[in-house]
């Protein structure tokens, strides 16, 4: 039994119903959890001496607009002792994209969560410093949401040079 299998078994035993599904894809395991259970799961995975997932490797989100549940928060934990990755997933609906922060367990989640807040508009309960991190403070919208336009501008070629040149806002001295 590998460490990841053990971890999954332990999660299932401790959290019961809150473990919604376990997927294995290309040899990588990801556990989908009830959003409420993420903090407990992280705490367990980190503190269990055998599992020892002591490093938060990545934290991000995916937007499935327009389907529901809209957001998926992705956690990738790593165990230095066992040299294994495990993924946790939590799905959030569009109405209340909110989840508890795991800052108290992995302090480096702070910036990652700020980034997810900035880019997806998912809020983190009890986060110590929830400000935008990457976009300007007064930016409107959350760029990585799927309903946010890419902001493509028409490319200027020789055939449409003059036309675009007219409306290009050149700077003044």
């Amino acid at each position: 039994m590998t460490v990841v299998e053990k971890a999954v078994a332990k999660l299932q035993r401790a959290l019961g119903e809150s473990v919604l599904s376990v997927e294995e894809f290309r040899g990588q395991t990801s556990v989908t959890l009830d959003p409420e259970a993420v903090v407990n799961a992280c705490q367990m995975l980190r503190d269990d001496a055998e599992l020892d997932f002591n490093f938060l490797a990545a934290l991000t989100a995916v937007d499935y607009w327009p389907s529901e549940p809209r957001f998926k928060i992705v956690y990738q934990l790593y165990s230095l002792a066992n040299k294994e990755f495990i993924g946790l997933r939590a799905q959030l609906s569009n109405e209340s994209p909110e989840i508890s922060t795991i800052e108290s367990i992995y302090p480096n989640a702070n910036w990652h969560e700020r980034e997810v807040f900035d880019m997806f508009g998912v809020t983190f309960k009890d986060h110590s410093d929830q400000r935008r991190i990457i976009m300007p403070y007064d930016w409107e919208g959350h760029p990585l949401r799927k309903d946010y336009p890419l902001g493509y501008e028409e490319v200027q070629f020789t055939f449409n040079f003059d036309e675009i040149d007219k409306r290009k806002p050149y700077a003044k001295e």
Partner: peptide
Amino acid sequence: GFPAPKGSVFVA
């Protein structure tokens, strides 16, 4: 381009 299956991977 080529289609990729549904699923997610994490590589470090």
